[in-house]
C-alpha cells in the first residue's frame, strides 16, 4: 500500500486563487513559486511529520479544488477532517465574504473539526497598507465568535506559516488527549455518529 501512516486530516478550504496551494507549498517545501513551476512534485496531498512536545504527529494536508464548479463537492472533501484551514485573501474582501459559508457548514457537519481562519498574502499589505480589504479586528471578533484561531500569513515571505501549522498540530495533540480522557470516563455519549456517506469516519 502506498503512503505513510497519518494521524490527522487537515483540509485547506477557500475560494480559487486565495493562495491555498502556495501556503502548502511554502510550508512543506519552504518555497514560493511564481509563474510556471519547475520540476516540482504535485502537492495535492502531503503527509508532514511534526513534533509536538516530544511526540510525533503526522498531518495529512489536503489541498482542495477551489474553483466554483466544484463548490458543491466541498462537503465530501472535509468529511472526517480534524482541522480546516479556511483561507481568504487579505486584499480581496469578496474572498472573505465566502468564509461564512464554509464555517457554517463545518460547524454543522463536522463538530470535531477545528477551524483556523487564515488571511493570505500579507506581504502585499507591507508594500501598501491601503491594499487591505479585510479589517483585522472585524475578523478577530468573528474568529472569537466561532471559536476559531486567526492567522495572517504570507507564502511569499513565509511569515506566520510555520506558526499556523504548528498550532494545528499542537491543538490536535491536546484535543485528542482530552478526548481520550473524556471517553474513558464515559462522558461523551454523542460519539457514535450517524451513518452517513462516510459511515466509517466516526472516530
Amino acid at each position: 500500500m502506498s503512503g505513510q501512516r497519518v494521524d490527522a486530516k487537515v483540509v485547506m478550504l477557500g475560494k480559487e486563487y486565495v493562495g491555498k496551494t502556495s501556503l502548502v507549498e511554502r510550508y512543506v517545501h519552504n518555497r514560493f513559486l511564481v509563474g510556471p513551476y519547475q520540476n516540482t512534485i504535485g502537492a495535492a496531498f502531503v503527509a508532514k511529520v511534526m513534533s509536538v512536545a516530544g511526540r510525533t504527529v503526522t498531518l495529512g494536508i489536503w489541498d482542495t479544488a477551489g474553483s466554483e464548479r466544484y463548490e458543491a463537492m466541498s462537503r465530501i472533501y472535509y468529511r472526517g477532517a480534524k482541522a480546516a484551514i479556511v483561507c481568504y485573501d487579505l486584499t480581496d474582501s469578496s474572498s472573505f465574504q465566502q468564509e461564512n459559508l464554509w464555517v457554517h457548514e463545518l460547524q454543522n457537519f463536522e463538530e470535531h473539526c477545528r477551524i483556523y481562519l487564515c488571511g493570505t498574502k500579507s506581504d502585499l499589505l507591507d508594500e501598501d497598507r491601503r491594499k487591505r480589504g479585510v479589517d483585522f479586528h472585524d475578523v478577530q471578533d468573528y474568529a472569537d465568535e466561532i471559536k476559531a484561531e486567526l492567522f495572517e500569513t504570507s507564502s511569499k515571505t513565509g511569515q506566520n506559516v510555520d506558526e499556523l501549522f504548528q498550532k494545528v498540530a499542537e491543538d490536535y495533540v491536546h484535543f485528542t488527549a482530552f478526548q481520550v480522557m473524556t471517553e474513558e470516563k464515559g462522558v461523551d455519549l454523542s460519539q457514535k455518529s450517524g451513518t452517513y456517506f462516510y459511515s466509517c469516519c466516526h472516530h
Binding site: M1, Q4, R5, V6, F45, W62, I76, Y77, S199, C200
Partner: peptide
C-alpha cells in the same frame, strides 16, 4: 466506505484519492 479500515480511508493518501473519486 462501509468496509475499509477507517484509518486508511480517513486521512492517508489513499483516502485523499478516494475522496476525489467520490467528488
Amino acid at each position: 466506505t462501509r468496509f475499509c479500515n477507517p484509518s486508511r480511508l480517513m486521512s492517508g493518501e489513499d483516502g485523499y484519492y478516494f475522496t476525489n473519486l467520490c467528488c
